[in-house]
Design a protein around this nucleic acid. Structure first.
Length: 961
RNA sequence: GAGACUGUAGCUCAGUUGGUUUAGAGCAUUACCUUGACAGGGUAGGGGUCGGGGGUUCGAAUCCCUCCAGUCUCACCA
C-alpha cells in the first residue's frame, strides 16, 4: 500500500465537509438529550470573512464539536445581520454608480434594490465559514430582517411602548444640511481644520454697580487720598498736593476701567453666527474672575436679548476667556448644559443650513455667509475684541462632505433605567458569567445608574424595520398593524370615518441592534411559539468581541430578562434562568505585528481565504487558537513584506498547525506500513509493549483531566497545546518509538491494535480543534462502517490514573535523555552500543522493579549491557546524576578531565546555591511556624535531595582528581 | 479629560485564589544527526535582575501604592 508522505488538506477538507452535510450531523432538533446551544454573533450580511470572524468561528466550532462528541444535542444557529447603516450606505453607493440618487426613488423602489443587493452578496460570508469547517446547523440560518424576525421587532416595540418604556424626545443629532438627513456618529468624519477663535464681548445687563474686591480696594484707596487732599490743601506743600491729585486721577481712571470691565464679559467662539441663538453665558463656578457675575444677566450683541449668566462645571477655566456662550440648539454640550439649567433653545438655522427667522438677522442667508456678515457687524458695534487663528475638529458628512450641524430632532428612545439595572445584576449575581471576569468592569462602566443613557432606537434610514407608529396629525398610535393603529385612532378621536390612508407611518426605522438584541430568542421563533425556545434557552455560551459589550451583549441580557418569563413561564425561568446565555467568552481583537487592529482600511489583514488555502483550515484553526487567550488581544503573526510594506498571507503559527497535520499523517503511515503477526517476535517487545500501553493509558487520563480544566475556563489555546505537546512528545516520540519494531521487523497484532486504539482516541479529542485531518485519519485508521465518523464518535471520560507509575516511566525517559545528551557532548554515536552501570540504591531498585522498564531503557538508549553495582566509581565511564541516583555510561573516548571538572563544579555551585536558599527558609523560625506543614515538608525534602546530590557531585569531583 | 486592560526569553504567550522550580511553553535561533513514518524530521544547547521604584509578608512574577510605556473604551474643549 502506498500513502503519500504528505498530508494534503486540499484533497481532504472539502470532501469531509460535504459528507458531514449529507449526514446532517450539524442539524439539531429537540430530543431527550441535553442541549448545547450557541447562537452565532451574526456577521454583516454584506461582509466578507476576516481574521476576527476566523477566530470567533473557530472558538465556537471547537466548543460545539466538543459538546457534540460528548453526546449533547449540539445546536449552533448561524445567520446574518442586516446592518442598516453599512448596508444602506453600500446600496446607495451602488445606486449612485448606476446614476440613481436615493432621493429620486421611492422607499419601495429602494427596498427592492436593497434586497437584490442582499440576495446577490448576502451570505457570501456564510459560505466562507464553511471553508473553515464551521459546523453550524445551516437549516436554521436566519437573517435579522426576514419576516419572522421583523415581526418580533415590531412586537417588542409595541410591547415596550405599552409598558411605557419607549418615548419620543428631542435629541441632538448629526444633521447633514446638504442631504437633509440625520447621520449616525459613524457616518461623520472628524478632521482638524483651520479656523478662527473670535473673542466677543457681551454687555452685562445690570442697573446696579457691580462690586468686586478690586473695585472696593480702589474705592478705599481713593477715599484715603481724598481725605489726604483735604489736609494737604490746608498745608502748603504744593508738590505733594500735586502728586496726590495725580494719584487720585489715576485711581479714578483705574476704577472707571475696572468698572467698565465689569460691565462686559468676553467669550471666545469659533462660530459667531450662532451668537444669535445664545440663551446663556456659562462660567465655571470655581473661577474667581467671574464670581461677581452670580445672578447677573448679559445682552446678546446686535439683538440685545438678555440672557442669564450661569455657572457650570463643564466650562474649562483655562480655555479661551473661561466664559462660554451657550447655544443649546447648535452644540451637543451646550445642549446638555441647557438641559441642566433649563435654558431656552433657539434654533437659528433652517434644515438646509440657512438662517431661520428665529435668528432675527440675516434670515435666509447661508450659515457661512451669515458668519462673514456677523463678524463685520460685531466689529462695527465694538463687540469684537480680537480674532485668533485656531485649529479645531470639524465633522463632515461621509457622503456629502458637508459640514455637519448638530441639530435637535425628534427621535424614539427606550428608557434604560430599570433594564440596565437588571442587566448589571445578571452579571453581578453570576447568572451570566464573563470570561475573563474583568469585563464586568467595562460592563458596569456603561450600565451604572449614573452612566447609562437612554437608547436612541430610531434611525433615519430605509433599510431596516420601520417604526410601527402611525401619525394622525400630531397624534400617533403604536400598533403591530396599520389596522390596529386605525382602530386606536378611531377610538381616540371618535371619528369612525377615518381610513388607513389618513394615517401616516413614521418614516424612520429602528436601530439594527434593536433587532439583534432579540437574537437568542428570535432565532427560535420564540416570540411566536415557545416549543424550541423551551429546549434551547438559555443558550450555553456567547462568543463575541468585547468591543460590542454595550451595543449587543448588554442589550441581549436586557431582552432576555424582559421577555423570557412572559414567553416561557415562571416555572421555567425559576429552574433555568432568564439569561439569554450562561457564559460569555470575550475574544480579543486581532492585531498585526505592530499591534494595530487588523482592518480592511489599514490593509494590514492577511486574506483569510488565502491562509486557508495555504495552510488548510485545520492549520489556520490551529494558528488562531494557539494565539488566542480569552479577552487578550491576538497578535497575529502575519509578516509584512519589507519592500511593499503590505501584509503577507503567511503565518508561522498556521504553519505549525499544518506541520502537525503532517506529523500525524506520517505517524499513521508508519503504523500502516508495519507487518503484523500474531505474537510478539522479541522478548523485549513482549516486555516493553505492555509497559508502553499502561503508561499511555495513565498519561492519557491525566491529559484528559488537564484539558478539561482548561476547557472549563475556556482556555482553548491551552487545551490545544496540552494535546499538541502530548501527541508530539509522548505519543509520537516516546510511545510509538517504544513499540516500534526494528526496521523490517513485524509487530504483534495486539500491540498494533492498542496503538490504533490510542490514535483513535486522540483523533476524537483533537477533533474539536482540527476537524478535517482528524476525520480523515479516523477513516485511515480502520475500515469504518457507514456512519462511523469521528465527528460523532464519543469523547472519552477521564478515569483515575496512577501518578507514581507515570513518574517512574518519566524518570526512565529522563535517564534516556541524559544518556543521549552525554553521547552528544562527547561526540559518541547515537546508536553505538555502550555498557551502562547503575549504582544500586533503594530508589533505583524500586524504579526498575517496574516490568519492562529496564528493557525499555536498554533498547531506547542503545545499551549493550546493563549492570547494577555497589561502587561509586567505574573505570572508563562517564557518570551522571538523575534525581539522587548515580549512573555510569561507558565512554569510548578519553575523558577531558578539566572540562568534566568544570561541568561538575558548575552543577555543584548551582545545587549549593539552591540548598542555601532552602536552608535559609528552613532556619527561619517564622517560616516553619507560619507556613503550612506540607510546604515545610516539601522544603525539607528539597533540602535532603539537594544534599544527596551535593554528596554525589563532590564524590565525582574527588574521583577526577 | 475619565476609566479599563496589558507590560515575563528575539517573537507570541502560560504562570489557576502568594509557597513543588534562584521562572515555563510554542515559535525563532545555534550545534550536531539523518537512506529506516516524517528535512514539514530528530537530538542537545543558548537565551529572562518577571517595565522602574517603594511597601505588606517568614516568603511576591503573583497582593497594595507610585511612576513609566503600550492598547482600547467613553467623553471630547467652545
Amino acid at each position: 500500500m502506498s500513502i503519500s508522505t504528505r498530508y494534503s488538506a486540499e484533497d481532504t477538507e472539502g470532501k469531509w465537509y460535504q459528507k458531514w452535510l449529507e449526514k446532517k450531523y450539524f442539524h439539531s432538533t429537540p430530543d431527550e438529550r441535553e442541549a448545547f446551544t450557541i447562537v452565532i454573533p451574526p456577521p454583516n450580511v454584506t461582509g466578507v470573512l476576516h481574521m476576527g470572524h476566523m477566530l470567533n468561528i473557530t472558538i465556537q466550532d471547537a466548543l460545539i464539536r466538543k459538546a457534540r462528541l460528548e453526546g449533547k444535542n449540539a445546536c449552533w444557529v448561524p445567520g446574518t445581520d442586516h446592518a442598516s447603516i453599512a448596508t444602506e450606505a453600500k446600496v446607495v453607493k451602488m445606486l449612485r454608480e448606476k446614476g440613481i440618487k436615493k432621493s429620486d426613488i421611492s422607499r419601495d423602489e429602494f427596498m427592492k434594490y436593497a434586497f437584490e443587493w442582499k440576495d446577490k452578496y448576502g451570505g457570501i460570508i456564510l459560505e466562507q465559514l464553511k471553508k473553515l469547517g464551521a459546523s453550524c446547523d445551516w437549516d436554521r440560518t436566519r437573517f435579522t430582517m426576514e419576516d419572522k424576525l421583523s415581526k418580533a421587532v415590531v412586537k417588542v416595540f409595541v410591547d415596550l411602548h405599552k409598558k411605557g418604556k419607549i418615548y419620543r424626545g428631542l435629541r441632538m443629532t448629526n444633521w447633514d444640511p446638504e442631504a437633509q438627513t440625520v447621520l449616525s456618529n459613524e457616518e461623520v468624519i472628524h478632521g482638524e481644520e483651520n479656523s478662527h477663535l473670535h473673542y466677543v464681548r457681551y454687555q452685562i445687563d445690570s442697573d446696579e454697580e457691580i462690586e468686586t474686591i478690586e473695585t472696593e480696594r480702589l474705592k478705599r484707596e481713593l477715599a484715603i487720598f481724598e481725605r489726604n487732599i483735604k489736609n494737604l490743601k490746608r498745608g502748603n506743600d504744593k508738590k505733594l498736593l500735586k502728586s496726590n491729585l495725580t494719584k487720585i486721577e489715576h485711581l479714578k481712571t483705574q476704577l472707571a476701567a475696572e468698572q467698565d470691565k465689569l460691565n462686559w464679559v468676553t467669550i471666545a467662539t469659533t462660530r459667531p453666527e450662532t451668537i444669535l441663538g445664545d440663551t446663556a453665558i456659562a462660567v465655571n463656578p470655581k473661577d474667581p474672575r467671574y464670581a461677581h457675575l452670580k445672578g447677573k444677566r448679559a445682552f446678546v450683541p446686535l439683538i440685545n436679548r438678555s440672557i442669564p449668566i450661569i455657572f457650570d462645571r463643564y466650562v474649562e477655566t483655562d480655555f479661551g476667556t473661561g466664559a462660554l456662550k451657550v447655544t443649546p440648539a447648535h452644540d451637543m454640550n451646550d445642549n446638555e448644559i441647557g438641559e441642566r439649567h433649563k435654558l431656552e433653545t433657539i434654533d437659528v438655522f433652517n434644515a438646509n443650513g440657512t438662517m431661520s427667522e428665529a435668528a432675527q438677522m440675516y434670515i435666509g442667508e447661508d450659515r457661512f455667509e451669515a458668519k462673514k456678515l456677523i463678524i463685520k457687524d460685531l466689529k462695527v458695534s465694538g463687540n469684537l475684541v480680537k480674532i485668533e487663528p485656531y485649529k479645531n475638529k470639524v465633522g463632515r458628512s461621509e457622503r456629502t462632505n458637508a459640514v455637519v450641524e448638530p441639530r435637535l430632532t425628534l427621535q424614539w428612545f427606550m428608557d434604560m433605567k430599570d433594564v440596565s439595572k437588571v442587566a448589571l445584576d445578571a452579571v453581578k449575581d453570576g447568572e451570566v458569567t464573563f470570561f475573563p471576569e474583568h469585563f464586568i468592569n467595562m460592563y458596569r462602566n456603561w450600565l451604572a445608574e449614573d452612566k447609562v443613557k437612554d437608547w436612541c432606537i430610531s434611525r433615519q434610514l430605509w433599510w431596516g424595520q420601520r417604526i410601527p407608529a402611525y401619525f394622525l396629525g400630531e397624534d400617533f398610535f403604536v400598533a403591530e398593524t396599520p389596522e390596529e393603529a386605525l382602530a386606536q385612532a378611531k377610538e381616540k378621536t371618535g371619528n369612525n370615518a377615518l381610513t388607513i390612508n389618513d394615517l401616516q407611518q413614521d418614516e424612520d426605522v429602528v436601530d439594527t441592534w434593536f433587532s439583534s438584541w432579540l437574537w437568542p430568542i428570535s432565532v427560535f421563533d420564540g416570540f411566536e411559539t415557545q416549543e424550541e425556545l423551551k429546549y434551547y434557552y438559555p443558550t450555553n455560551v456567547l462568543v463575541t468581541g468585547w468591543d460590542i459589550i454595550y451595543l449587543w451583549v448588554a442589550r441581549m441580557v436586557m431582552a432576555g430578562y424582559e421577555w423570557s418569563e412572559e414567553l416561557l413561564g415562571t416555572e421555567f425561568v425559576e429552574k433555568k434562568g432568564k439569561q439569554p446565555f450562561n457564559d460569555v467568552y470575550f475574544t480579543g481583537m486581532v492585531r498585526d505585528l505592530n499591534r494595530k487592529k487588523m482592518s480592511k482600511q489599514w490593509g494590514n489583514s492577511p486574506n483569510a481565504l488565502a491562509l486557508i488555502e495555504k495552510y488548510g483550515a485545520d492549520g489556520v484553526r490551529f494558528g488562531m487558537l494557539s494565539s488566542a487567550s480569552a479577552g487578550n488581544d491576538i497578535i497575529f503573526d502575519a509578516p509584512f513584506d519589507k519592500k511593499t510594506k503590505s501584509v503577507l498571507n503567511e503565518s508561522k503559527l498556521c504553519e505549525q498547525g499544518s506541520k502537525f497535520c503532517n506529523k500525524m499523517w506520517n505517524a499513521l503511515r508508519m503504523l500502516k506500513l508495519l507487518e503484523k503477526v500474531d505474537n510478539p517476535t522479541t522478548v523485549e517487545a513482549e516486555k516493553i509493549n505492555p509497559l508502553a500501553k499502561t503508561w499511555m493509558d495513565n498519561k492519557f487520563n491525566q491529559l484528559l483531566e488537564t484539558m478539561e480544566v482548561n476547557y472549563k475556563s475556556y482556555r482553548l489555546g491551552d487545551a490545544l497545546m496540552n494535546l499538541y505537546n502530548f501527541m508530539w512528545n509522548d505519543f509520537f516520540s516516546e510511545y510509538l518509538e517504544m513499540i516500534k519494531p526494528d526496521y523490517g521487523a513485524p509487530i504483534d497484532e495486539a500491540s498494533y491494535d492498542e496503538a490504533i486504539g490510542f490514535f483513535e482516541k486522540f483523533m476524537t479529542i483533537l477533533h474539536p480543534f482540527m476537524p478535517f485531518v482528524t476525520e480523515e485519519l479516523w477513516h485511515q485508521l480502520r475500515d469504518r462502517k457507514d456512519g462511523d465518523d469521528c465527528i460523532i464518535s464519543s469523547y472519552p471520560k477521564a478515569e483515575s490514573y496512577d501518578k507514581s507509575f507515570i513518574k517512574k516511566v518519566d524518570t526512565a525517559i529522563e535517564i534516556i535523555s541524559k544518556i543521549r545528551s552525554i553521547r552528544k557532548e562527547k561526540g559518541m554515536k547515537d546508536k553505538e552500543p555502550l555498557k551502562f552501570y547503575i549504582k544500586k540504591t533503594k530508589t533505583v531498585e524500586d524504579l526498575f522493579n517496574l516490568d519492562g522498564l529496564e528493557e525499555m531503557l536498554v533498547r531506547r538508549s542503545f545499551i549493550s549491557e546493563l549492570k547494577y553495582i555497589d561502587t561509586d566509581e567505574v573505570e572508563g565511564t562517564i557518570s551522571f546524576i538523575s534525581g539522587t541516583d548515580k549512573f555510569f555510561l561507558e565512554s569510548t573516548i578519553k575523558i577531558d578531565v578539566a572540562a568534566e571538572k568544570e561541568k561538575i563544579t558548575t552543577e555543584l555551585e548551582y545545587t549549593q546555591g539552591f540548598i542555601k536558599s532552602v536552608e535559609k527558609k528552613l532556619s527561619n523560625e517564622r517560616f516553619v511556624q507560619n507556613a503550612p506543614a506540607a510546604v515545610v515538608e516539601k522544603e525539607k525534602q528539597k533540602l535532603a535531595d539537594g544534599q544527596a546530590r551535593i554528596k554525589i557531585l563532590e564524590e565525582s569531583l574527588a574521583q577526577l582528581n
